[in-house]
Nucleic acid binder design. Structure first.
Lengths: 344, 344
DNA sequence: TTTAGCACTCTCTTGTTTAGAGTGCTAAAA
DNA sequence: TTTTAGCACTCTAAACAAGAGAGTGCTAAA
């Protein structure tokens, strides 16, 4: 079967646009009227029939209008992916907000989630930039009460870990500080993994501390990498396809449980390049729960140092043009911010 | 008008129970059948009429059953507040989960939110324990790149703040460490407020650092006190009164925006004692947006040192018995945990 | 190749009817 | 005096029917 004609592409595009707007199947007559097309509804009907045959459109029932299929959206998005850009004024407005706030990752994440949600009228999600290699910049041991010691770890990249541990016997603050100093020396410029594996020759206190730090780092790697900032949930729950339906509840549960989300984000983070935008439509056969949804994702950060993922989750009929360009822009903006404030 | 008779109280209680179960107005006949009452439906009808007159019940329309009013719930909850307790087995099960996980506030918050949501079948919210007086336990200055310096502040209580600042001229790590040491000396056992106000005689670097720290602490006090852990949103969105309705969307927005929530939580935190449970029904005239909801709240922590708030938000017909006992138990459990792990 | 025309098929809305649940009142029973 | 059986009445929600409207595919003419 041959390529689509320009006119067919136009009609497909218009149907997608109209369906995004109204959320109801779009018919030939309405389309011609709405967009002042230079052809009759009969012509549109013929093209629609052809598009339906090719699997880009679908009829809910015999006498209803057409609705785009997943295939239809994929085709549309494929053409869209490398062209649209956010208006300059919007870009400046957004940047401004970021450069006005404090240099605080947490706030940036919230702000980013908020901007994404607002621009796309959908739900947004973003993970904080996560360092690729675990290197300890600085470690501090603080005696608190009895044998309790607070370990504070500053990673290269600026992340901070803390952990409260109980020693087997009391140790003075002076000794603790000295121990911390020695460990700091060892960590200088090395991956923490290496420090950990060469710990066997050290005194037992040092060894213990290094083990605790290691545990903490890995702990956060697995668990609190689950820290996903969300926003705009209310946006999608007021869409008709989610509002009162079982699908809506399922989607809400996905957002809340975060394990599936985590799954999707990390999988994208794995084999995706920086700055590029990925679009998952209808779960792509892998995630049954996302049947009704589409996700627009991008990885951001500084290659080799730290990276995170951000994206938008919405109904399949979301406004892809706007969403994709917003995601792309936010990705590059955050990459800039991260590279400017990386602690080395 | 006299007190309610025992029988009226019984009927009111049963209606509340039945309405919580079915979410539909409950009629005299059904009530007698369901609970095998030793009286006829006509008697129940008479009592219902009386309860309606007193404002504890309400009829959606002439030939419908009765629905509890806010007043009805208040009366019911007032009687309930000081008696119910979570089953021992449940208490042990929950404690076990907490003592099994790491001593990590973030995880505790997540776990607490999850437990509350599960037990109450509603939405839960909880804020991390926040120290009452700001006292700095330890401060650290770490040189990163050029004139950038990372300030790490460990508060009494265990909170950690970090902030990246840019000095006006480069300072060596050794000098930074010395400065940090001097400030640490000053902070020993004092409220940071006092350190701040007596800073004028210090060298300019010290003064700058103290100002930055002060800013950071206040910043977190106002903004990131907004860190509210939520769970169970899906629970309430699948309740019939929220599912497809405008009220549902409004409630969702409340949970997402958090400013109103913040408002409610802090206001409770102000004039509420520790361990006690507060129940807000239908916004209590103050919060129009919560018309359909009820909130069960408690303050937890260690008086004078650190405290947070936890609670459950659900439909007004929520199961108060279970919710109140869960909230009370969680409040005391978390208080214990906080007091055990406070950094002094 | 496009389009006007038309018969046909669905759904959605609207109006009507009906069954059922629930009420309040009255009068008899306890 | 309190409870209950009986009954007329009210209102909702479900069921059904009818008609309007939107949309389609096909055919034949432009």
């Amino acid at each position: 079967m041959e390529e689509l004609t320009e006119r067919q592409k136009l009609i497909l595009t218009l149907i997608i646009h109209e369906y995004a707007r109204t959320a109801t199947p779009v018919g030939s007559k309405g389309l011609v009227d709405q967009y002042r097309l230079e052809m009759s509804s009969a012509t549109v009907r013929n093209e629609m029939a052809s598009l339906t045959e090719r699997g880009y459109l679908r009829q809910p029932h015999t006498s209803a209008g057409r609705v785009p299929t997943e295939e239809g959206y994929r085709f549309f998005v494929g053409r869209l992916l490398h062209q649209t850009d956010l208006p300059d004024s919007t870009q400046r407005m957004i940047s401004h907000q970021f450069y006005q706030t404090r240099r605080d990752v947490e706030q940036w994440m919230r702000l980013a989630a908020s901007v994404l949600a607002h621009q796309s009228h959908a739900a947004s999600m973003i993970t904080a930039p996560h360092p690729e290699r675990a290197r300890v910049k600085h470690i501090e041991l603080i005696s608190t009460r009895g044998r309790q010691v607070l370990i504070v770890v500053v990673m290269v990249g600026g992340e901070i870990h803390q952990r409260l541990v109980t020693l087997s016997e009391p140790v003075s603050q002076a000794q603790l500080s000295a121990t911390a100093d020695r460990i700091n020396q060892l960590c200088q410029g090395k991956d923490f993994e290496d420090v950990y594996s060469s710990r066997s020759t050290l005194p037992s206190l040092e060894q213990d501390v290094i083990s605790w730090v290691k545990e903490e780092i890995e702990h956060k790697d697995t668990l609190a990498a689950g820290e996903i900032y969300l926003d705009g949930i209310a946006n999608i729950m007021s869409q008709p396809e989610f509002s009162g339906t079982e699908d809506g509840r399922r989607t809400l549960r996905i957002l809340e449980e975060r394990s599936l989300l985590q799954n999707v984000l990390t999988r994208t983070l794995m084999h995706s390049s920086f700055g590029g935008v990925e679009v998952l439509i209808g779960g792509e056969g892998t995630w049954e729960e996302l049947r009704q949804c589409a996700i627009v994702l991008s990885r951001y950060g500084v290659p080799g140092l730290a990276s995170g993922t951000l994206g938008v989750l919405g109904p399949m009929r979301m406004s892809y043009g706007r969403t994709i360009s917003t995601v792309r822009f936010m990705s590059s903006l955050l990459s800039d911010l991260v590279s400017e404030t990386l602690v080395e």
